[in-house]
Design a protein around this nucleic acid. Structure first.
Lengths: 296, 296
DNA sequence: TAAAAATACTCCATAGGTATTTTAT
DNA sequence: ATAAAATACCTATGGAGTATTTTTA
């Protein structure tokens, strides 16, 4: 018998989806549960909010009047959580999301470790799958949010940069590049190069950057194309070639002195990792906090 | 495990009262129930919101950060209800409030009838008691809101005009005033007058208005002082004198031709009835709607 | 030690699920 | 005839009450 945020959320989703059952799916509820909450809202305001018919659900005048309030209440909740994020220290609950292969394997472990230390009672469920599976998961609301290496272009998905990354040159410690006082792009082109496979986001970024520098990607002396970051690192360590790779994936090797990285003069390769969220999703607190944490 | 408006409301009340048990009283809950909701909020945000000690309850830094959001959520609710009020047609629930004697007896019946017709499923509980009892009821949260004849001056009570009223001259149909083309204040002073008792709000308004017109109240030919509106009407009908009385109390007599009312030239006596609400009270939907209804 | 918050427990309302029926095109 | 919303029914969670214990100035 009282107005709740939950009801407004459900109402908003039904209005947006134009269907009780589709909204139920998006909300991870059953259709009768959605019906119940909307009915409770209708009873609260003493007026019907939707006109139901088997093919379509439409807002009534009062539904139209309520819609902006429902929207505002969602935004309010987001703001409240954001505003409180600085004070959160001991969250409980679940943090479930998806990440692309590279991010899941090399970037996240460190951040998840820090986050988990700060919030030991949060259970983390991470699905590492390829980007197209992530997008599908987002669209059918199986995944709350995803971390990907490039913006997702889909009308229902909102992407936002969350982490800065850099692609850097790597070579084994004894390599002759180590002798040079400075390394130019031309120097890089002189040496055997190990590249990621076609379709890799990393490869794409490298090629775009070369183009930007006025260098045809064909000029790379590509000796191998490998489909995994780990394989490339091993190849470089074994002296099979040099490569350009995500900075975040080689902390370990740098620390152990297994690989060396040097700046390529005048050729910094910046990129971002992105969060991807369904336009109409309301992320749970743990998720919002984690994203906020990633953005620092 | 989800943030609710209810929790924010309780949190806000505790913060305002500086005490769980006092807040519980204001919210018509028990202290353990308040504790529970605050704990739920603290768990949700993963941070303590209050520092408890036997003498005082103080906000922590995170509590201070949350406070404006809690306040905003209350205002949001108010706005949402107000914005929806035009569409409410079949409310359910209880409408419980208090009213002063005159308002309860003569003014409210009509409005309650109209309101009840529009919302037949609302149960109305009206306590008609004198103003000082109403104020006490408001202060200890026994009464949600009250309708009174004059603004209440108390730091914890917010008064607001809700109904317009007018004090009008009445005389019996055959009275010689009926012959006059226009009635002046001087004409009124010529005739025997029936007045309310000392301390009556109505009498006070009349005296103030006379003073404003530069007329000493002593000049009224007061033949009787009666302590009830009904008695005055009977007296006027019986030809014992004329009187000035609240317009809203004589609809019935005017319709039956038992009394006549005429304007006193240049001497309109306007006044308002007021709603009185505890500063920190959150009125239930039915109450908000009813007040909105009274304001038209 | 005394006043207030926290805890223990019990009960009940209600949210949500599954299964089924109703409804309107 | 069919897809979708409403209803019926059941279960379980948790919100609120009463009684009691714990806490700290």
């Amino acid at each position: 018998m009282a107005l709740t945020f939950h009801q407004l959320h459900i109402f908003y989703t039904v209005a947006e989806k134009g269907s009780f059952s589709v909204a139920a799916q998006a909300l991870h509820m059953t259709q009768p549960a959605v019906t119940m909450q909307v009915q409770a809202l209708e009873e609260f305001f003493g007026t019907k909010l939707f006109v139901r018919s088997p093919r379509k659900v439409e807002l009534t005048d009062s539904g139209i009047a309520l819609l902006p309030y429902a929207k505002e209440s969602l935004q309010f909740m987001q703001r409240a959580v954001t505003g409180m994020s600085a004070y959160m220290e001991n969250l409980k609950g679940q943090l479930a999301f998806g990440a692309s292969l590279t991010i899941g394997e090399y970037v996240l472990p460190r951040f998840l470790g820090m986050f988990s230390k700060q919030h030991p009672d949060i259970t983390i469920q991470l699905r590492v799958v390829n980007t197209s599976q992530l997008v599908e998961g987002l669209l059918n609301h199986q995944i709350g949010f995803a971390l990907v290496e490039a913006p997702v272009h889909h009308p229902d998905i909102v992407t936002e940069p969350v982490l800065h990354d850099e692609l850097v040159l790597i070579y084994p410690p004894g390599h002759e590049l180590a002798q040079l006082p400075r390394i130019t792009l031309e120097d890089v082109l002189q040496h055997p190069f190990i590249l990621r496979e076609k379709g890799s986001g990393t490869r794409q970024v490298i090629e775009e950057r070369l183009q930007l520098a006025g260098v045809d990607a064909e000029r790379l002396r590509v000796t191998m194309e490998l489909a995994s970051t780990g394989a490339i690192k091993s190849g470089v360590q074994a002296g099979l070639g040099i490569s350009i790779i995500s900075r975040s994936t080689i902390d370990h090797e740098l620390a152990l002195g297994l690989l060396t990285t040097r700046e390529i003069a005048g050729c910094k390769i910046d990129r971002h990792f992105y969060s991807a969220v369904h336009r109409s999703a309301l992320l749970p607190l743990a998720a919002q906090t984690f994203l906020h944490f990633l953005r620092q």
